[in-house]
Design a protein around this nucleic acid. Sequence first.
DNA 1: AACACGATGGCAACCCCTTGCCGCACGTTT
DNA 2: AAACGTGCGGCAAGGGGTTGCCATCGTGTT
Lengths: 326, 326
Amino acid sequence: MARPTIYDVATAAGVATSTVSRAFSNPGRVSAETRERVLSSAAELGYRPNPHARALLSGRHHTVAMVVSDITNPHYFELIRGAEMRARMSEYTLLLVNAEESPRMEWEQIQRLAPAVDGFLLAASRLPDENLRQIADQRPVVLMSREVPGLASVVLDHVEGCRQIVAHLSSLGHRELVYLAGPRNSWMAATRWAALKEAAERAGTTARRIGPFTPKVSQGGAAADGALNDGASAIVAHNDLLAIGVIQRLTQRGLRVPADVSVVGFDNIFAADVCTPGLTTLGGAHVDLGRVAVELLLTADARADDDQPSVVLPTELVLRGSTGAA
Amino acid sequence: MARPTIYDVATAAGVATSTVSRAFSNPGRVSAETRERVLSSAAELGYRPNPHARALLSGRHHTVAMVVSDITNPHYFELIRGAEMRARMSEYTLLLVNAEESPRMEWEQIQRLAPAVDGFLLAASRLPDENLRQIADQRPVVLMSREVPGLASVVLDHVEGCRQIVAHLSSLGHRELVYLAGPRNSWMAATRWAALKEAAERAGTTARRIGPFTPKVSQGGAAADGALNDGASAIVAHNDLLAIGVIQRLTQRGLRVPADVSVVGFDNIFAADVCTPGLTTLGGAHVDLGRVAVELLLTADARADDDQPSVVLPTELVLRGSTGAA
DNA sequence: AACACGATGGCAACCCCTTGCCGCACGTTT
DNA sequence: AAACGTGCGGCAAGGGGTTGCCATCGTGTT
């Protein structure tokens, strides 16, 4: 038989549909006794509210969309996990959308979903600030791993993280490092480089940048060759995938890591722990990042437009075998 | 200003709302000229249909839900990617749901979402056959990495795959292998063991099973110790995570892989390629699996209830350093 | 005893879009 | 010229809930 509706429940309980509705969504508005009767009728019939009908009028969908710039990057899975957990805690559904590194596709998907979700989680968005503000005008938005003035965001503390990286390399005697940059339109790539350069200057270390590189293992070859050409004794890659590709290429070319070259990555993905040598990488509370982002999104209504928090979570430098004395 | 509705477009174009609706969803029903006028008015106003209102009446939501039993397992990422790609190709949205290995949670989430999605993709569902059939009565369902008579499914060819594993180990001189079983309610765990045992018998090899183990790296320790106790020269782990944990533990205990013990995994996750030694594992077209599953789901309406295909995709044994002569 | 007021339930409009059915204006057939 | 299509728009009824407003009832106040 067809799914029971609120009308069926109303008939069964001998009340009006409005009473049924209120019994569920506004318990204080009906007497305890009536409520009890409605709920038991509903349970008996196996009634479940139709989310679409509910959303149509109320405008609340109990759904948040998370848009990731590239779902193939294992780094995002931690964010997704955290977001999914927090969303489910509040009985929200997480919609996952992949933008495949294409700003246009990202924009279109967001526009398509805008009327159907309560807000957007944008992970490492490739859209320009301007567009992000437009989206924020329509729906609450929380940026992940990106900051834009006036918009809510959650990021890891890469300034401090880069300082740790430089300090670590410095203490091992490295006086020159090269940064393998990420994609041109990646905010993270710009941020990491700025923080790295600044930290290097303070530590009396030389930092150079080459790239940009698409942050995938397959690009590690080209990146490694470029880095060797540069002559630095330490390589800081835009992320772990690239770093792993670099190590593979270095090993293939007969260099020893870390005896000849040290390599550092970002993200602390699972593979960083099992590759050889283990990858020294800047990790952090990625699951928390996802969690906090949803938290911010769900509480967005309670904040004024000009009160959008920018949460910064701590990083931790995970030392493994890929870094050693210069 | 508020999002324009079909009424605004109708007014702007000087037609009735029904005409606007048809201009979009039933082009043959209006004259080319009228359609043109409606579309340009709509474009001008920036009109986008409200998916909820559309779904409410039509019953089609252009959304499919994918339920994974444990989102922390990187193996699923490939399935998710494939499913996401195929869904987007048809302008469908993919809803991602995590069941956290809990059948109860899986069931509740599915019931909650049932009225809001066009179908379910259930990856490695932990629900009993009975429940799966109930779900299939409500909505189209496609199982991934699981088979239930009468329901559509996509799986890798583990019978052939296990044969390959046994043949490989056999050719290296292994005469005894031990299988580290997956979770008790996992269909895959049962299937792999059955296939392995059968293949082993034919090859004149002894196969024993220990477990079950939760398929995580952290369980590799206990699994490895159990396997060593068994005395077999080759270990076949339920999946790569477990296998990697096993290798770590073996190495820690001073054994050499593969000189002392060979290890084989399942899934060919990214980390299998970068760990040391590289993990020999049974891979397959996981992205295709996701793709095909969505394909089946989207075409489910066209098939009779008793014509639910069970697609079997090929596997490939990826040889790496973790297996060697006995 | 007359009145005020809070608690509770029902009525009906509304959210936005789809679709069955009707009617009109043509063109075609015999 | 009468009888018939046929193509195309509009009307209006939902689809399943939510919510503003009104009616009713019981209790407390003076």
